[in-house]
Design a protein around this nucleic acid. Structure first.
Length: 116
DNA sequence: CTGGTGACCATTA
DNA sequence: TTAATGGCCACCA
């Protein structure tokens, strides 16, 4: 039997790379779309990271909530309740919000990408 | 094929 | 500090 009989090849490849990288983010820390793109082997493709997470299937064991934008802000639309859930999940892991945003210098991962 | 869209980013003013 | 701009590329109509 073929391993992947009826799966779109390109799409799966891109998504898998992103999900794999996101999985590496330790609990209580956050990364950015751009940083994940680098770790996934596609530097400069931050938008594709967002696209891949947007199409993340329900129940997937991927800590999507640990990915925020380069400004330390949640990039999900406020409407829909997803943004609120992301913030709740992060705070439950000990991530602090100051003035509505996360200080990447303190919580950013990997450290080397956020140390000044 | 073309054009528009998006859970983005760095630069510039 | 915020706002605008160009670049990036998979996906869709």
């Amino acid at each position: 039997m073929p391993a992947r009989p009826d799966i779109s090849p390109r799409r799966t490849d891109v998504h898998l790379r992103v999900w794999q990288a996101v999985r590496k983010i330790p609990r209580g820390r956050v990364s950015t779309y751009g940083a994940i793109a680098r770790l996934a082997g596609m530097p400069g493709q931050a938008r594709l990271v967002g696209y891949a997470l947007h199409h993340l299937p329900d129940g997937a064991e991927v800590p999507w909530h640990r990915v925020v934008n380069a400004q330390g802000n949640i990039s999900l639309p406020a409407a829909g309740g997803r943004a609120a859930r992301q913030r709740r999940l992060l705070e439950a892991e000990g991530v602090r919000f100051a003035a509505g945003k996360i200080r990447l210098a303190a919580h950013g991962w990997p450290r080397s990408a956020f140390r000044s």
